[in-house]
Structures are given as C-alpha cells and as structure tokens.
Design a binder for these strands. Structure first.
Lengths: 239, 239
DNA sequence: TATACTTGTAGTCAAATAAACCATAAGATA
DNA sequence: TATCTTATGGTTTATTTGACTACAAGTATA
C-alpha cells in the first residue's frame, strides 16, 4: 500500500511499518454507597493470568470505534444506551508485551441498579473496585484509569453527566455526595443545595426517601429538556 | 495472532480483522494580526489532488504516538518543543476512501515568529488559513479541526496555554485579543487587566511596546514557575 | 506649539456570588 | 416526651463581577 497521504516530506513506509492492532479499553464507573467504583476483570490465561485489568476488546474491521466501544460495553454489562466518552489513545510501543497494540481509552457511567454482569462472567471474573483502592493492573491500565478519572473530574464540573451514575430519582444529599466523592472536596450542604437548585436543572419527582431513620428528603429527577435549553445558551457548572 | 485479551466473551477475530493503518493529523494553530489561524497543506496527487487538508503522517512501528506527532510537527515547521495535545481518535470505517485508516487528532500551538515552513514545501503547498474561513477539507478533516478548536477553547480557560501562541514578550491587550479571538467573546479592557494581573502569573518584562502611534504598553512575560506553584494548589481560569 | 486622537492604566460603584454560619422543621427512636 | 439526625430555609459578610468614568502618556497633525 503506497502512502496515500503524500503531503509530508517523509519517506514512504511499507505496510508492515504502519499496520497495528487496535483495541478499546474502558473504565466503567458506578457509584455505590458513597464510593466511586470501577469495574475490573480478571485475566484467565496468558502471561498476566490472575491480574486485573480494564475490560476491553478488539475493534472490528468495518466498525466505528465509538460503536465498537458501545458494543463491548453492552456485551459486558447488559446495559444499553450507556454514557460513553472517549478519553485518549495510548500508544507506547512497549505498552503491550506481545506486539504493537494501540488502545483507545473510554470511560462509561452507569447506574448500578441497572447493572448485571453478563453471562460468561462469574463473580470471580469481574468485580467492582473503589477508585481509591485500585490494585496493580495489567499493561498500562493504571495510566488509562487515571486519565479517565481526570477526564471525569473535569467533565462533571461542566456538564451534568453525574446523573448517569444515580438512580432516576435521588435526593440532593446523594447528588452532593456524588460530587464530593468524584472531586474529593468537602462541600456545605446548604450552599450546594442553593446553588444547584438555582440552576433549575432538577424537577421534583414527587416522592420522598423511604427507609431512613430521620426526616425523609424530597426526591428529584434530572430534566433533560431543561438541560438542553441551558446548554444552548452557554452554561457552566462550577462547585 | 490469537486474541491476547481473552477477557471478553466475544469470538476471536483473525488478525486481518483487527489490523489497521494508523495516522496522525494535526491542527497547527497560530495567532497573527488578531486572527487565529491554522496551517493547511495541499495534496499534490491522488484522488484529492488540489484539495487542502491537515498536515499528518504515519506512525512508525516502534514509535509512541505522541513522539510521532512531535516528529511530524518538527519536520513540518522546523520548530522544536511545540505545545502539543492529543484531541481524539477518529475511526469511522468510511472516513478514508482507500481503506480502513484510523487517525489520531492533535493540535499544536506555535508562535508565528519562530515558524518557518520546512524545505520541501513551497508556498503553494502549505498555507495559513483563518479558522473563521476554512474551505472544504479532505476526508473528515473539517471534523477534526472542529474538535480541536473546541478542545482549545475549553483548555484555554483552564490553563495558560495561550502564551504558546504569543511572542515571549507581549502586552496585556495582545493577550486579551487572543482570548477574545479564541473564545469569540467581547471583553472589557480594564476588567480583563484587573482579573489577569490578580492571578500573578505575569512578570513585567521591563520594556515597552515600540513602533505604535500611541502610548506604548508595558511588556509582560509568562512566568512558568509561578504557574506551576499555582496549579499545585489547584487553580482555575475563567473569563 | 497646541490640539486632537488613540490606547494604556487606575479607580469607582452597584449588583451578583460565594463562604461560613445559624435556626428551625420533620421525622425516627428510645 | 425528650433526643437524635438529617432536611431545608435563612442571614451575614466578604469577594468578585460588570459597566463605566477619568486621567495618563504618547503620536500625529494643524
């Protein structure tokens, strides 16, 4: 294959020089009991048997990489329409020990209630880990996870994607704890409440918390339509 | 090559199914006479002869992709130590008409004063275009450019990378015009000044503007060390 | 030399925001 | 009933913003 992009003064490179394998690796985040967690899978064979890593897989020949990421996630979690965002592509020559493999990192946000580990995985093969307590992972997966976390921390301040980690109805305190956990900052309950309500992004869902041994909080839901209107006018979160 | 990542319940894919060509495409931005511009190159042969596109090239077999981007840029512009940031990887199956080619998009910021088109390019082969006035580009390069611009607009509000587009010494008005141009918002001279100086990121460079037919403004320079200190403590731009 | 013209630089003031609190409400539990 | 916990609504003060005014420091030109 002759270099079809002859607009740089480099020598042509043969096909063998430029062909690579490309994979996808994905950080699946969820929020459980106040902790941000990520789904790891255990290798069953090969040189890294027993070690944990991010779930991932190959991109098919005629498949968009975003579509491939979506497919892999659906296969893995059984959930459709997952929030998914490309983070960055990792391509150190030595990152994969058996050959040159470039990987595209993604992160996904899912509501734990919807989640079911798909058939094919047993409990010992996939497990949630708190992001504050991650073991040594295979290859460069710690680096991919760190980059994904950084991206998530930035994004959560600019768009209300945090809702993807919560059930449909949630209390303001749950929402605040989500931000507290992701951003690792303390917040004032009262000020958070005022600030968030002023944005008018939340609808009262009508009900109240149940099963708590204190005054029950109102439940809210996120209003997609209002969000779309606000973003059109240029909108900015900050906490 | 047997699938070395057997931790997803998909069927193995043959090597032919997963090998791809990978390229890099780069938006090189500069700031000239109040306009943000991007460097485009013209195709000399092939099906898109005569059309303009982003400069790019192949990643070598044993080369990190960030390193490859840096190499391509040095070859193209003759400038070393360019500010370079990966934007995103583009992988629609049909994006490149002659086969599956996945490309990693980067953007770079350079100071126009340092820039020289490298030997191998004649004036007709590489040209600066205002980002407000971009023609139809080859393949998906308009999309890559748009994504790069969006990334630049976000980043410039969070880190002082705009300095990479300015000469070493610059006036506050030049700096403001840079932000005005990139973010496409009007600003108040006096308020911008107050806000920026309060950050204490700028050092007085000691001299004054020359060759202007009005009161000459003080020259400032960006202080890398102060910036590092501030970012350690958690720092946030907003305009 | 005087005057106009242009941009630089400093400051004012009212409105909006943020941060740190305080107080009461609404339940559950003992 | 008293007590405990979280929910929710306010207050107060300091800080930041945005709009605007005024004067300084030069150049150009009448």
């Amino acid at each position: 294959m002759k270099n079809p992009l002859p607009f740089l003064p480099t020598n042509d490179l043969s096909a063998a020089e430029v062909m690579s394998s490309i994979t996808i690796d994905c950080c699946v985040f969820s929020f459980e009991k106040g902790n941000l967690e990520v789904l790891l899978v255990q290798h069953g064979e090969g040189i890294s048997k027993g070690k944990w890593g991010l779930p991932g897989g190959w991109i098919k020949k005629e498949e968009d990489i975003d579509v491939a990421a979506d497919r892999l996630l659906s296969e893995l979690t059984g959930v459709k329409d997952i929030y998914l965002e490309q983070v960055r592509t990792f391509g150190k020559p030595e990152r994969f020990p058996l050959g040159r493999v470039i990987t595209v990192g993604y992160y996904a946000l899912i509501n734990r209630e919807d989640f079911n580990v798909k058939a094919g995985f047993t409990a010992s093969e996939a497990k949630w880990y708190r992001v504050k307590d991650i073991p040594d992972l295979i290859y460069d997966h710690n680096e991919i996870l760190q980059a994904s976390l950084n991206r998530l921390r930035g994004k959560v301040k600019r768009a209300p994607i945090g809702f993807n980690l919560l059930p449909e109805k949630f209390t303001l305190l749950q929402l605040m704890q989500l931000y507290t956990e992701i951003l690792d900052v303390e917040m004032d309950k009262s000020n958070f409440r005022r600030k968030f309500l002023k944005m008018k992004l939340l609808q009262e869902a009508g009900g109240k918390q149940t099963g708590v041994s204190h005054r029950a909080a109102k439940l809210y839901r996120f209003d997609e339509e209002i969000y779309q209107n606000l973003t059109r006018k240029g909108f900015n979160f900050e906490f």
